[in-house]
């Protein structure tokens, strides 16, 4: 479980990106962070994954004594492509495996099986720059899985992907959940949240404006689907 208490991030420019967030992420659930561009999703993920320090507030990973223990149990798929441009596909994977202390045999086996799964086994020795956008996205996701994380953070993992590839990624995420992995995913595709999430948090201007299961959110807001909920909540938020 992850407990988030009164989390705030104010950038040097005095921009309040995240404003007093409090919520828990339960073990084994798929937790969605929804919100328009600029709502504070990425900043929240970056604080949860120890890449940016909170201005105030607390993040507690149950069962992790220190930052190193947290880093061992999390996997992170960033919003932007962040491969090492000087390394090949396979070397990028190997770097990750080495940094997470897999032994030689595990490294080879895990990299092989993950590359096969995303049908990139044949480009293992290619320059990472030569991959298409969709290939890079898929590689970015499986790289984060090499060390079998217990908690996976995905920041808009299916942005700009073909529908088939997007569905394949959804399938993968569901599979991971079935294996007991806790998943925190941000998206601005409502359908994605509807398809995947056990619970969804709506962010607007850094604030949490709703948090519940998609079904409950629809019921409570008298909406037919999550999209209507989204529009209604955003409008309400503008009024006050």
């Amino acid at each position: 479980m992850i407990r988030i208490k009164n989390l705030c991030k104010v950038f040097k420019s005095n921009k309040v990106a995240v404003d007093d967030l409090s919520f828990d992420v339960n073990d084994g659930e798929i937790f969605g962070l929804l919100g328009k561009n600029g709502a504070g999703k990425t900043t929240t993920i970056r604080m949860l994954t120890l890449q940016t320090r909170p201005t105030s507030g607390e993040i507690i990973f149950e069962g992790a004594a220190d930052d190193l223990a947290v880093k061992k149990m999390i996997g992170v798929v960033p919003q932007h492509i962040n491969f090492d441009q000087d390394l090949t596909v396979g070397e990028n994977m190997e770097l990750h495996a080495r940094l997470h202390h897999l032994n030689r045999q595990e490294q080879r086996q895990r990299i092989h099986e993950l590359l096969e799964y995303i049908e990139l086994g044949n480009v293992v020795n290619d320059d990472v720059r030569s991959l298409s956008g969709g290939m890079k996205r898929r590689l970015l996701i499986v790289r984060a899985l090499i060390h079998r994380p217990h908690i996976l953070f995905l920041d808009e993992p299916t942005v700009a992907l073909d529908p088939q590839v997007r569905r394949k990624i959804w399938q993968l995420i569901k599979q991971l959940k079935a294996q007991g992995v806790t998943i925190v995913i941000t998206t601005h595709y409502i359908e994605e949240a509807e398809q995947l999430c056990d619970r969804t948090a709506f962010l607007s201007r850094g604030k949490l404006i709703a948090l519940d299961s998609p079904a409950n959110l629809c019921r409570l807001n008298n909406a037919a689907n999550l999209e209507d909920v989204f529009i209604r909540l955003i409008e309400d938020d503008k009024i006050d």
Binding site: Q51, K71, K72, V76, P78, N82, F83, Q85, L99
Partner: peptide, 17 residues
């Protein structure tokens, strides 16, 4: 460039090292 442009430094920041 790894930090500012390619952001590949993030791999090391996220790693348990």
């Amino acid at each position: 460039a790894e930090r500012v442009y390619h952001k590949s430094l993030e791999e090391y920041i996220l790693a348990p090292i």
